[in-house]
């Protein structure tokens, strides 16, 4: 298997934690809420899933627990940031620190233990195409994540629910005036974002690298937040961005396998460097951000 095939085969799986967390953050941001706690929410979901899978509860229960647990933690964010109108940046950071702390606390006795991942399922016919075929041999969570991407895209493009979420984010006062509860929409969006971050963490901990290590999320939650900006708040572009980061995080492994003489630390920081560079390129187009950005992002709603 050459480097390109290796990256193609692993890209979607590597992209899944980014994708799930970014889709969750997309919904929250579209509703006007900036939740910077994604890293901690992922870490919390990851440890819950790992503990359950380790004790034989199975992957399904692990994912459910991770989704529920992180959703509950994100509701704490909702209470503080919406209920008490606290600064969303500070609240998000606090949730992030709390989530990472709880993750380290619960995971302490599981350090370096492993669980079994999930089997890969091949897509009929397509998986037999030479070279590209490996793209179509993925585990069930990857397939479900792709379905979730499509569903979210359709929701924002075609459904009233998607329109309401966007209206609340663009102009909360107007949305309120025509009878929508800004707070309920935002709380639901935050909880959805929390659950997705929990799934993302669970995937990272019990499927992608099924080995517990403190700090295993390693900045992926932050990259997911950056992905929402990269994708200029559009579902399809966020998917492409997640694939890019999946590929970039595999590039390090591929480069090492081919014996390229580059310090491993440089390869490990590649995703962060790419984030910085792409963020600069996309943001420099102020018009693009202004057109697609969410008008009330991060601002508390006061009637």
């Amino acid at each position: 298997m050459n480097a390109i095939e290796f990256i193609l085969a692993g890209m979607l799986a590597a992209a899944t934690p980014f994708l799930l967390a970014a889709l969750g953050e997309l919904v929250a941001e579209r509703a006007g809420v900036l939740n910077l706690g994604v890293e901690g929410l992922m870490a919390f979901g990851a440890v819950l899933a790992f503990i359950i899978v380790y004790h034989g509860g199975g992957h399904l229960l692990g994912f459910v627990a991770a989704g529920l647990g992180s959703a509950v933690l994100s509701l704490v964010f909702a209470v503080v940031a919406l209920g008490f109108r606290a600064n969303q940046v500070a609240t998000g950071l606090a949730i992030g620190i709390l989530g990472q702390g709880l993750s380290a606390l619960f995971g302490k006795t599981y350090e370096s233990l492993t669980v079994k991942g999930l089997p890969k399922l091949a897509f009929p016919w397509l998986s037999e195409i030479p070279i590209l075929g490996s793209l179509f041999i993925q585990d069930i969570v990857v397939w479900l994540s792709l379905a979730a991407t499509l569903a979210l895209w359709a929701m924002f493009a075609y459904t009233k629910a998607g329109l309401v979420v966007r209206a609340v984010g663009e102009n909360p006062k107007a949305a309120h005036a025509i009878g929508y509860s800004v707070t309920s929409v935002r709380v639901s969006a935050i909880a959805f974002g929390g659950a997705m971050a929990g799934f993302a963490g669970a995937y990272a901990a019990v499927v992608y690298t099924p080995l517990w290590a403190d700090g295993m999320i390693a900045g992926r939650g932050w990259i997911a937040i950056a992905l929402v900006v990269f994708g200029t708040w559009l579902t399809g572009r966020i998917f492409l961005g997640a694939c890019l980061f999946g590929a970039v995080s595999l590039m390090g492994l591929a480069a090492q396998a081919t014996g390229l003489d580059v310090p491993s630390q440089l390869l490990s920081s590649l995703p962060y460097l790419v984030t910085i560079i792409v963020l600069g390129i996309i943001s420099a187009d102020r018009r693009l951000l202004k057109l697609n950005g969410v008008a009330s992002l991060g601002e508390p709603f006061e009637r």
């Binding site: 932050w222 937040i225 900006v229 962060y272 460097l273 984030t275 910085i276 963020l279 943001s283 951000l289």
Partner: peptide, 15 residues
């Protein structure tokens, strides 16, 4: 470049 300082400064910490 108009980039969000929260994300950039955090990424630079990881680097």
């Amino acid at each position: 470049l108009n980039a969000n300082e929260i994300l950039v400064s955090l990424m630079l910490s990881l680097v």
